[in-house]
Simulated assay, not measured.
Amino acid sequence: MGMPMRVKGTKTGAIVASAVMGSVVLSGCGGDGESEAKGGDASPSTSGSDGAREQSTTEVRAAYDKTAEAESARMTIQMKLSAAGKTITSDGHGVVDLAEGDSVMTITAQGKTIEQRGIDQVLYQKSPGQKTPGGKPWIKIDLKKVAAQQGMSNQQIGDPAQTAAYAKAITDKDVKNVGSEKIDGVNTTHYKVSVDVSKLPGGDRMSKQLGPTLPMQVWLDDEGRIRQQQIDMTVKAPASANPDDSASPEELKMNTVMQFSDFGTEVDAEAPPAGQVADMTGQALQGSQQQG
C-alpha cells in the first residue's frame, strides 16, 4: 500500500516524480482557481506568427527562474487522481521555499488532515490515527533514496538547480498564448505548453510511463512569475509481474493545479524532533518495488 506523499518542490519534475515514483499517491493542497482552461473562445494570439510564438516560449522558460527569484511563496495545490474507477482528491495549503525547495503544508485527503514538512528532500508527515513503529507521531521518507531506486536523479525531486532542465524541455512549437485571465485577482497571461518528456532527467524511463509529451498550462503575472500551473498526465502502470494476470496495464490519471501568491512570505521549515519520528523509507522502497 502506497503511503500518502507529496514530493516537495515547485517544479514540473517534482510533480512528474510524484506520479512515477509508485508509492506516491496522495499529495495535494488546493487552490480554488479554475482548473480548466476557458474553452476555446479565445484563439491563440500566436497563430501564424513564429516571432510571437518564440516570444511566448522565451517567457514560459524564463518563468521558472523568475519564480525562484521570489525566494518563497504561499502555495495551494489541488490534486485529483483517478484509477481503477476510483477518484481521490486532495487539497492543501502552505508555504514553500522556492530557492531550497523546503515546504510546510497542511493537506486534506479522504477526510484526513495531514501535516507535512519537506526538508532537504526528506518528507515528514503527521496524520491523526497514523500507526507507526513505536507509536511515534511523525513518519519520514527519504525521497533521495526512493528516487535512486526508481532510476531517477535526485535533482528530479524539486531541486531548484534543475529548473533549467524542465524549462528546456518545453517544445518551441507547442507554446500557445491563450490570452489574459485573472487568477486570484491578479492579471495573468495564460499559456498552453507541451513538455518533451525525453528531455527531462531520466526521460527515457519516464517516457515509457507518461508518453512522449506532457500537457501543461501556466499563468504568468506581469513580472513573469508563475501564479498558477496545471498539469494533466496519464501514467501507465508497469506490466504486472504476475504471468497469470492478463489484464491490461492500469492507468492513473492525475490533474494537479498549483497556485502561488504572497511572494517573499516567511518559511519556517524545521524537521520534527528525531525522537518523534519513525523512518518509513524502507517500507516506501519495498512498496515501490512491488508496484514496478
Score class of each variant (00 low, 15 high):
94 G>S: 14
122 V>R: 14
184 D>E: 10
99 A>T: 12
184 D>H: 03
89 T>Y: 00
213 T>N: 07
17 A>S: 12
16 V>A: 08
91 D>M: 03
242 N>L: 13
151 G>K: 08
288 S>T: 15
278 A>D: 10
117 R>Y: 06
273 P>Q: 01
113 T>E: 09
213 T>L: 04
3 M>N: 00
86 K>C: 02
98 L>D: 07
191 Y>N: 03
219 W>E: 05
8 K>G: 12
6 R>I: 08
260 F>L: 09
182 K>Y: 04
46 T>F: 07
273 P>S: 01
223 E>C: 08
159 D>V: 07
86 K>F: 11
209 Q>N: 03
285 L>C: 06
220 L>Q: 00
285 L>G: 09
8 K>R: 08
27 S>R: 04
147 A>R: 05
187 N>C: 04
78 Q>N: 14
227 R>H: 06
164 A>N: 06
104 V>K: 07
51 G>D: 14
155 Q>G: 14
175 V>D: 00
156 Q>H: 02
146 V>D: 02
72 S>L: 07
190 H>N: 06
226 I>C: 08
183 I>V: 15
280 M>G: 07
72 S>G: 11
138 W>I: 00
92 G>Q: 02
164 A>P: 00
124 Y>M: 12
210 L>H: 02
250 E>R: 12
58 T>I: 04
130 Q>I: 09
271 A>M: 02
262 D>S: 11
157 I>F: 05
57 T>K: 05
38 K>C: 11
1 M>Y: 01
165 A>Q: 05
188 T>E: 08
142 D>V: 15
151 G>T: 14
98 L>M: 11
155 Q>F: 15
178 V>S: 00
108 T>Q: 11
259 Q>L: 12
49 S>T: 05
135 G>E: 04
195 V>M: 06
224 G>M: 03
121 Q>A: 10
110 Q>R: 13
183 I>W: 09
266 E>D: 14
162 Q>T: 07
88 I>V: 07
192 K>S: 06
234 T>I: 15
87 T>R: 13
151 G>A: 13
245 D>Q: 12
292 G>F: 03
143 L>T: 08
111 G>S: 09
54 E>V: 12
121 Q>M: 13
226 I>G: 10
241 A>K: 15
85 G>W: 11
78 Q>V: 05
59 E>A: 10
214 L>N: 09
143 L>E: 04
239 A>R: 08
267 V>P: 03
42 A>P: 14
29 C>N: 14
22 G>I: 02
107 I>D: 10
68 A>H: 03
266 E>R: 13
120 D>E: 10
50 D>L: 15
282 G>P: 09
194 S>M: 15
263 F>W: 03
129 G>C: 11
249 P>D: 06
157 I>G: 02
288 S>I: 11
176 K>G: 07
196 D>E: 13
111 G>N: 12
119 I>C: 11
288 S>Q: 10
210 L>C: 02
232 D>Y: 14
176 K>P: 04
4 P>D: 05
189 T>R: 02
36 E>V: 13
52 A>R: 12
281 T>V: 08
172 D>Q: 02
232 D>N: 15
141 I>F: 02
